[in-house]
Nucleic acid binder design. Structure first.
Length: 579
RNA sequence: GCCCCUGUAGCUCAGUUGGAUAGAGCACUGGCCUCCGAAGCCAGUGGCCCGCGUUCAAGUCGCGGCAGGGGUACCA
């Protein structure tokens, strides 16, 4: 045993690493030490050591299969390697036992006294508990929602909003500097179609007949907007040139819609640092610069009077950038890709973000290779682009799917959901699945305030602790007193603390995998372990001789409450004192 | 046709990048409040779409099927 204490996990606010990684570092040291003493032949210590939480009590708290993989390189039985490593792992204050177990796992058991001693640190760290420094201050941008501003937020866009927002929160907790941006698609033909739709309805109010655009927006909200326009502006748009009226009403309409989107998102607890106009990419001349840059690189081709983008990575020979069907304004008919290229340049070069994260519905998956190819073509590293694709949402009501169709203008909006369900269940339900699966959103379940609804389980644990703390105060206990953590020795107490100690790992996992759904399962597990602790351990005891234990348990309860609040807030949910 | 996602318990889903005995909620059955919030806890029933392959080890990787959803460039 190498007599070298390793301060890998200082705990508290200074904690920059998670326990799993610390165990990995210990294993690396053990692998090296075993070679140095000749217990193992020389080989290169792997840079990345797999460590995972033990799934069964017999496996300890963490285990690593690294020696199973080394068996081939070293031409030795994995169990022999594991034994050699286990003997050479340096001592660390948080590890009580290191064992080699057949067929070749190295298992670690945390020291219970160390575990208990972390409680005051976690409590003192408060809402910063769980933060890690993976990001090392890198500046990243998360662009999300970015729904067309031609109609209210749909449930599909709501999933986007929740994923993007929670991702941003998690990435911040992982040590990145994050900007949240909404990309406003205010260029192109849809503004015209939208403006034309409003104008047509508007004209009807004055008894005039302006045909409804073929690709117009039929929803009832358009008619309501026309009424608002009539109230605010009178009939002035009938007097002016029709194309001009379409343009002005289109821009006015977009502003109205965006205001509504901003309000609805605020009710969900989501705000953006920046709203970025697509049109500005054309007005600033950046689009032209990018086209010139692409042309210089031989990536532009003219065909049928249109402009096409070419790149060897594409499965098609070329992708349309700009259409020949230009009328008066040449910027009116760009394609999606056209603005995406200058936008990307703006993010990564002009504004200098280290990474650009996009949250897209899976129906856009076909655009991924194009944007990556465009990045390469203008000389940007495609690794700096991270695109999260999430699958569709289906709504259930009364056990049946609610059919939605944007073309008919009939769809359930975020505003409907907020009125019917409220922000917390929306967020939890939208978050509880991986982005890769179609989300089934059960409206009846979401509104149901019962034990069938998982949303309330976590919040209930928080309020339950709040209730216990209130009770303690009524009994004369000082809720702020710091107890003696060494008295926390019950298995249910230690299980609860170990779960709290693993929050940094969850944040690392969710951030590196861009998988915010891990938070929901963590929150549920943490709540569950509190309930078990509550069942097994009387917190507030007036028995003589149990005053110190009560103080210690009150401290643990407050700590659990703090960590629960931290997780709820990472998910953008409230942590109520009563419910 | 081609591309992407999915297929795990009766239902809805996890499964920490290939590890040890595959987990949770709901539903169903039975138990637990004269003491801190029973929106809670405990116990029981029950599962990896099919085939081949890679590997010491496959729910996880590869190939081929089957099934469902999405996309397929002038709407973005």
């Amino acid at each position: 045993m190498v007599a070298q204490a390793v301060a890998l996990f200082p705990g508290g606010a200074q904690s920059k690493m998670n326990l799993r990684k610390s165990i990995g570092v210990l294993l690396q040291a053990g692998l090296q030490a075993a070679q140095d003493t000749g217990a193992l032949p020389a080989f290169e210590v792997p840079a990345d050591i797999p460590v995972e939480p033990g799934r069964h009590a017999a496996h300890g708290d963490y285990g690593s299969p690294v020696c199973l993989g080394l068996a081939r390189v070293l031409h030795q039985a994995p169990i022999r390697i594991a034994q050699a490593v286990a003997e050479h792992v340096p001592a660390a204050p948080f590890v009580a036992r290191v064992e080699a177990v057949a067929p070749g796992f190295v298992n670690f058991t945390l020291d219970p006294a160390w575990v208990a001693a972390q409680v005051p640190d976690i409590l003192a760290t408060g809402e910063r508990w769980g933060s890690v420094s993976e990001g090392e201050g890198q500046r990243v941008q998360v662009e999300f929602v970015s729904a067309n501003p031609t109609g209210p937020m749909t449930v599909h866009a709501t999933r986007n909003a929740v994923i993007g927002d929670v991702l941003a929160r998690v990435i911040e907790a992982a040590g990145y500097e994050v900007q949240r941006e909404y990309y406003v698609n205010d260029a192109g033909s849809k503004v015209r179609h939208f403006g034309g739709s409003i104008l047509s309805r508007y004209a009807q109010l004055f008894g005039a007949d302006i045909p409804f655009p073929e690709q117009g927006y039929p929803g009832a909200y358009v008619t309501e907007m026309a009424q608002q326009a009539a109230d605010a502006f009178g009939d002035r748009y009938l007097a002016m040139d029709q194309a001009e009226a379409v343009r002005e009403l289109g821009r006015w309409g977009i502003d109205q819609i965006l205001k509504g989107v901003e309000e609805d998102l605020a009710l969900l607890g989501i705000r953006f640092d920046n709203w970025f106009s697509e049109r500005s990419l054309y007005e600033s001349g950046l689009f032209g610069e990018m086209m010139a840059r692409l042309a210089a690189g031989g990536h532009i081709m003219q065909r049928d009077g249109a402009t096409w983008f070419m790149h060897p990575d594409l499965d098609k020979d070329a992708v349309l950038v700009r259409s020949p069907q230009v009328i008066d304004n040449p910027e009116d008919r760009p394609t999606y890709l056209a603005s995406d290229i200058p936008y990307l340049w703006n993010k990564l070069v002009v504004r200098g973000f280290d990474k650009a994260i996009y949250v897209w519905g899976a129906d856009h998956h076909g655009d991924v290779p194009r944007v990556k190819a465009a990045a390469k073509a203008v000389g940007l590293d495609p690794e700096r682009i991270v695109i999260i694709l999430y699958q569709m949402v289906t709504l259930l009501r009364g056990g049946e799917e609610v059919r939605m169709s944007k073309s008919s203008g009939e769809f359930v909006t975020l505003r409907d959901l907020l009125a019917e369900v409220g922000p917390d269940p929306i967020r939890f339900m939208m978050l509880a699945r991986t982005v890769d699966v179609t989300l089934e959103f059960d409206l009846d379940l979401a509104v149901e305030q019962s034990d069938r609804n998982p949303v309330f389980y976590v919040k209930y644990a928080h309020t339950r602790i709040a209730g216990v703390l209130r009770h303690a105060e009524e009994q004369g206990w000082d809720p702020e007193s710091v107890g003696d953590a060494a008295l926390l020795t019950h298995p249910s107490e230690l299980d609860l603390i170990r779960k709290m100690l693993s929050l940094p790992e969850v944040i690392t996992l969710a951030s590196t995998n861009m998988a915010p759904h891990h938070l929901t399962s963590y929150a549920t597990e943490l709540a569950s372990l509190f309930h078990v602790f509550y069942r097994d351990c009387r917190i507030v005891s007036n028995e003589p001789g149990e005053a110190d234990l009560t103080r210690a348990r009150l401290m643990l309860a407050r700590t659990a409450k703090s960590v629960l609040a931290r997780v709820l807030h990472l998910m953008g949910m409230t942590a109520p004192e009563r419910m």
